[in-house]
Design a protein around this nucleic acid. Sequence first.
DNA 1: GCCAATTAGGAAAACCTTTTCCTTAACTGA
DNA 2: TCAGTTAAGGAAAAGGTTTTCCTAATTGGC
Lengths: 365, 365
Amino acid sequence: MKDPANPTSRTPEDDRLRRRIGPTIRDVARMANVSIGTVSKALNNNGSLKAETRERVIAVANALGFRPNSLAQSLHRRHSFTVGLISNDSFGRFTMPIAEGLEACLADRQIAVFMCNATDDPERERQHVEQLLGKRVDGMVITARRADRRPGLDGALRGLPVIYVFSQSDDPEAVCLLPDDEGGARMAVEHLIGLGRQRIAHITGPERFEAVRLRRDGYRQALTAAGLAEGEGYYLSGDWSEKWGYDAAARLFAHGREPPDALFCGNDQIARGAADALRERGIAVPEDVAIVGFDNWNVMTEASRPPLTSVDLNLRALGREAGRRLIAMIDGTPMRGVSRLPCTLVIRESCGAKTDTLTGTEDYA
Amino acid sequence: MKDPANPTSRTPEDDRLRRRIGPTIRDVARMANVSIGTVSKALNNNGSLKAETRERVIAVANALGFRPNSLAQSLHRRHSFTVGLISNDSFGRFTMPIAEGLEACLADRQIAVFMCNATDDPERERQHVEQLLGKRVDGMVITARRADRRPGLDGALRGLPVIYVFSQSDDPEAVCLLPDDEGGARMAVEHLIGLGRQRIAHITGPERFEAVRLRRDGYRQALTAAGLAEGEGYYLSGDWSEKWGYDAAARLFAHGREPPDALFCGNDQIARGAADALRERGIAVPEDVAIVGFDNWNVMTEASRPPLTSVDLNLRALGREAGRRLIAMIDGTPMRGVSRLPCTLVIRESCGAKTDTLTGTEDYA
DNA sequence: GCCAATTAGGAAAACCTTTTCCTTAACTGA
DNA sequence: TCAGTTAAGGAAAAGGTTTTCCTAATTGGC
């Protein structure tokens, strides 16, 4: 049904197509009476074109609502301006702030983020990696893998920039970004010592978490540095729940022997549970016992009575930094090894100091 | 520096390139001694090829680790197998389960999800939409916009499938998917009535939220249907915090007049605050007063004493359904209007019934 | 008024696949 | 043996853009 009088006129059916798909660079070229190469040059501000031509082309492109096809651009440029984020906690409480920081950083550079949830299932992870590689992502971020470090994804992604955030890899060459749990704990306990506390107990989560071990180490370092002894039975490892905090505190204060004058807790839920236990026993917080939590999860810190002093992992900052490093790697800067970013101590009422915010010092491992 | 004896041999420098970028269909074709068309046919299982050829090509492709370039495929197929998700609560507590459900549904169909955070800023939203359109997404999901409905994004995305989840649009044609707040509230209150409660109060969040108004309506419908009157001062609107729940409960039970025998709360934080207030007054839950919360946020429901019965919004299911509908729209099925998905009542100890899970009936508006 | 140098813009290859159409060869049946 | 099918696979266009190379036109210098 082609019009033999005008063989180039694919306008009728063409137009209908375009309406669904948007105008292409050819449409702009035709309207502006130039070649498609010229349009490209005008829009990307290179080549040598008369100013008038450039402006005219741009005007036509705007009038038509032309939007360059990123897929075609990527195909040619060998960069997709796209990265993948593989989460393992089902987009949980930890992945969210990381994703937010990452996305904010990358969005500034016009890089979009594919979000995938692998739920710690190696097979799903593999599928996602496969898909992302097919889509030619420029880089990849892996977050919140479980304690048990799995072999890297190294096989498939030869040379592709990858960064593990809040998560580790077996590969010593891998780039990992983590919060400085040890430093954060040390800071919290030093703060308590600075407030005159001498008998500081530590109630925390399951030891299979590296974070638990690191926070414990930080706790002990601070005690040792101040010449304080760790009281008998003052280190209590359980699960991450309020109930455990409540029970552990009850245990600490039920004994006949001298009770602690401060509790450093492995997370805010534990801290809140402990605070509840003390309140029910008529032990005043912070007067009799100071409490410091970990995570600075405002749902907990603010609802706790009194509001909790807590260590913030700065996950948003972690995400942003991951974005920066990934961009650097994509731009060719070589990177390797594990870095830890400082935590921040957010002071509220439960420790007896005046409200403040203290940030740890950088401590790259 | 071309080898005149073998003009097609781009192997030396070519190979180095390939190593970074991976083999292309040409490499497979060359290795298998067939044309690229044949490779394509072999891998996509169409065209007419001898079984032996097909297998040989596939074997070569595997050996080379060939991974088709999605960008090139999309360019040709006019489908990118990609959708955009624009969140407005900074990947908050509500977006995440929705995203999880959506991703799970779409991943089954090999569709990847771009996640963008607009933080309720129209300008950022516009930028993200622009970027996504450039990337030629097949569809778009908008979540968790604020109460104040903003004009649709309708201008730019002529004809692109868009679905609003947990969020509304001015455009009456827009496809919206929401939880059935009203039905969920009705179910909760009917459940309390069924347990013999007669004086049921409702402590809830700020009235500017449509969810608050709908839950209140459901509450009143259930009372009316059972021939019960709403007690004087039994409806209390405040903020979403534990503190408000605590204060409101204190107010309800401090008065000289007859106290409620059940509390239906607008969210779990309020419910937990109320439970704390009652416990401190020596009022037994659920014996003296039954409590039902809303959101079924396990951090709250499980830490509350006793554990909270609560209405689950089924956000994961909402996300999955959004995925299904988006796929349908992409496949050409026309859709419009607002749908609401049923909530589920998760029964724990705070209401005095035996542990159970009840799902509301479908109720499409 | 002529040659060289510069400028403006076009043509076409390249990026990687898919798909349509076409050619060749082998096979079928008479 | 020959015409007519069918099977197998190749060639090339298409998809939308960027970039390199090239041509034509303009300018400047003498």
